[in-house]
C-alpha cells in the first residue's frame, strides 16, 4: 500500500482478527463441548473451556456411536462418506473430461445438442426434482446402495465447462503436431492432453471431494439402511435426539469428526482449492 499509516494498519489487522475469531467461534464451542462429560450440559451455560473427556468421547463415537439415535458408529459413516466423496469426485472428473474432449476436439452431428443437454444440468439442482429422481433411483433398485448414492450425482456441467475452457486454451498446434507425429485421438488424449490437465484435475478433485462430502439431502432420501449412512446425514439424526436427551458432548465429537476431513483438504491444498473454486465458476 502506498501510505504508511500505523492506525490504518492496526485497523486492518483488527478487522481480520475479529473476522477470524467470529468465523472460528462456533467451531471452538463445538470442540469445547466435545471434551466434556454429558453432565456438564445441564447447567445454564455451555462450558467455555476444555474438559477432560475428549479422548473417551471421540473414541466412543468413533467405535460405538449412539444407538439410541439409530446411527451406526462414526467409523462406518466416515468410511461411507469417504467412498461417496471420492467416487463422486473421480466419477465427475472422468465423465466430464471425456465429454469436454468430445465437444472440443471433434465435430459431429448433435454436438450443440449434447452441449446444451449437459448445460441444462446446471439448472436442475436435486432440490427441485426430489421426488421424481427418488422414484427413478427406487425403480432402478438403487436405494440403499453405493451406486444409488453416487451415480445420480456425477453428471457435472461445471466440470465439463472447466475442462472445455482449459482445452480451448491448449494451443491448436499441439494437437496438430501430435497428429503429424502419428498420434490418434485416444493416444493424443492419453499422452498429451491428460498430462497437461493434471493441475486442473487436482484442483477440481478438491472442490468435488468437498461437494461429495457435504451432500445431505440426497443421502437422506436414498438411504434408510444405517449401513449406508454418510456422516453428514448421520449427524443430523444424532442432533435430533440430543435436544431431548442432552448428549451434546457426543454430538459435538461427531460434528468435529465430520468436519475434519474436508476442512483439512481445504487447508492443506489451499492453492488447488482456490484455483478450483475460482475457475469452476467462470
Amino acid at each position: 500500500m502506498i501510505e504508511n499509516r500505523p492506525f490504518l494498519a492496526f485497523l486492518t489487522h483488527l478487522v481480520l482478527i475479529v473476522g477470524v475469531v467470529v468465523v472460528a467461534f462456533p467451531v471452538y464451542l463445538a470442540f469445547i463441548a466435545s471434551t466434556h462429560g454429558s453432565g456438564d450440559f445441564m447447567r445454564g451455560l455451555v462450558p467455555l473451556l476444555p474438559g477432560p473427556h475428549m479422548i473417551e468421547n471421540y473414541s466412543y463415537m468413533f467405535n460405538v456411536g449412539l444407538s439410541t439415535a439409530g446411527a451406526p458408529p462414526l467409523s462406518i459413516m466416515l468410511l461411507n462418506s469417504l467412498v461417496m466423496a471420492i467416487s463422486i469426485a473421480v466419477g465427475k472428473i472422468i465423465i466430464s473430461i471425456l465429454s469436454a474432449y468430445a465437444i472440443v476436439y471433434f465435430k459431429f452431428p448433435f454436438r450443440l445438442l449434447a452441449f446444451w443437454t449437459i448445460f441444462i444440468t446446471l439448472m436442475l439442482p436435486v432440490e427441485v426434482r426430489i421426488i421424481p429422481t427418488f422414484k427413478v433411483v427406487s425403480d432402478l433398485g438403487m436405494l440403499n446402495s453405493y451406486p444409488g448414492l453416487i451415480i445420480p450425482l456425477i453428471a457435472s456441467a461445471t466440470a465439463t465447462f472447466l475442462f472445455r475452457q482449459f482445452f480451448l486454451t491448449v494451443p491448436d498446434e499441439l494437437m496438430e503436431a501430435a497428429r503429424v507425429d502419428g498420434a490418434g485421438p485416444l493416444k493424443f488424449f492419453r499422452d498429451i492432453l491428460l498430462p497437461l490437465s493434471r493441475t486442473n484435475i487436482a484442483a477440481l478433485f478438491v472442490i468435488l471431494f468437498i461437494y461429495g462430502w457435504v451432500q445431505y439431502l440426497w443421502p437422506l432420501l436414498v438411504t434408510t439402511d444405517s449401513k449406508y449412512y454418510t456422516v453428514v446425514m448421520g449427524i443430523k439424526r444424532l442432533a435430533a435426539t440430543a435436544d431431548a436427551e442432552p448428549q451434546w458432548n457426543f454430538v459435538m465429537a461427531a460434528v468435529m469428526l465430520a468436519m475434519l476431513p474436508p476442512v483439512l483438504v481445504v487447508i492443506l491444498m489451499q492453492r488447488l482449492f482456490v484455483k478450483g473454486l475460482v475457475e469452476t465458476e467462470k
Binding site: L98, S99, T117, I120, T121, L124, R129, T133, V136, A155
Partner: peptide
C-alpha cells in the same frame, strides 16, 4: 466419449 455423461444426465436429471 459423451455417452456416460449424457446417460446420467438423461436418466437422473432430464427424465425426472
Amino acid at each position: 466419449l459423451l455417452l456416460p455423461q449424457l446417460a446420467v444426465t438423461l436418466i437422473f436429471f432430464i427424465w425426472p
